[in-house]
Simulated scan of single mutants.
Amino acid sequence: MDLEGLRASIAAVEARPAGSEDLPPLAPEAHEAATASLRLLRYRPRSEQELRDRLAEKEHPPEAIDEAIGRLRAWGLIDDAEFAAEWVRGRRRRRGRSRGALERELRGKGVGEAHIADAVADIDASDEREQATELVRTRLARRYPGAVDREAAVGERRRLVAFLARRGYPTGLAMAVVDSELAAHGPS
């Protein structure tokens, strides 16, 4: 669920009567934890573990956290599988992250291995190479509108390999892509 969809769902939840027929009212402490969770979700979607951690930091009792998380699930506001899939789509599109980097980020957010595997299942080696190539091409086009001379290529190679490494690409792939693109952008 994207941020706008999530915000619309939160508004619909907040407009519901407190004790609707399908769900009993929350205990007072659980209501506070659920309200705090809704505030957090207005900024961005979060994994279940992220919400649990944030609520625990704010010293909500464990029973209240469990009840609030259960209610958020019932309302359809948290779903780790959907969160992981959206995280992967967004981070690949906006940041150019590699499969390995995405897996590490999702683990850090407490997403389960099965959800992580499903979210990155469509990313294969050719997708990784294509993404890395596009990142390097964009960077080279911005820095060097014309050809890259041999002297500049030496320093640029190091910078571009490091650039891809920060996005989680393996060194071998990064070096191969950078060398190929520098050769293509070199003097004729």
Rank of each mutant, 00 (worst) to 15 (best):
E134L: 15
R142C: 00
G112F: 02
A74Q: 09
P25R: 14
G146F: 05
D124P: 00
A141P: 00
R44L: 04
R95H: 09
P62T: 02
V178C: 10
A147P: 05
H115T: 02
D53R: 13
E151S: 14
T133L: 09
R157K: 15
G112A: 14
R71K: 03
E130Y: 04
R129C: 04
L51Q: 06
L26K: 10
K109M: 03
S47W: 02
I65E: 04
A121Y: 01
G172Y: 00
D124G: 07
S37C: 10
S180G: 10
D53K: 05
Y43W: 08
S98Y: 12
L6K: 01
V154W: 03
H60A: 14
Y169D: 09
R54K: 09
G155T: 13
P187L: 14
G108D: 01
R107M: 01
M1F: 04
F163Q: 11
G5Q: 13
R166Y: 11
S188T: 09
L38Q: 09
M175E: 14
P45S: 10
L106K: 06
R166L: 13
G110C: 02
R99F: 07
G90V: 11
E59L: 09
P24G: 12
E21F: 14
V13F: 12
E103G: 08
E63H: 10
E113G: 08
A74H: 03
L182K: 08
L3H: 01
R129P: 01
E63F: 08
R7T: 10
G90D: 05
E63A: 15
T35W: 06
A165T: 13
R44T: 08
G112I: 03
L23Q: 08
A33I: 08
A165R: 13
L51D: 04
A152T: 13
G100E: 15
L77C: 02
A74G: 02
S180A: 12
V148S: 05
A30G: 10
S188N: 12
E50S: 05
L182P: 05
E29K: 15
S180W: 00
A36N: 00
A153F: 07
E103S: 12
R143E: 13
L3Y: 00
V120Q: 02
L55E: 07
M175L: 07
L40G: 06
A152C: 06
R89V: 06
A114H: 09
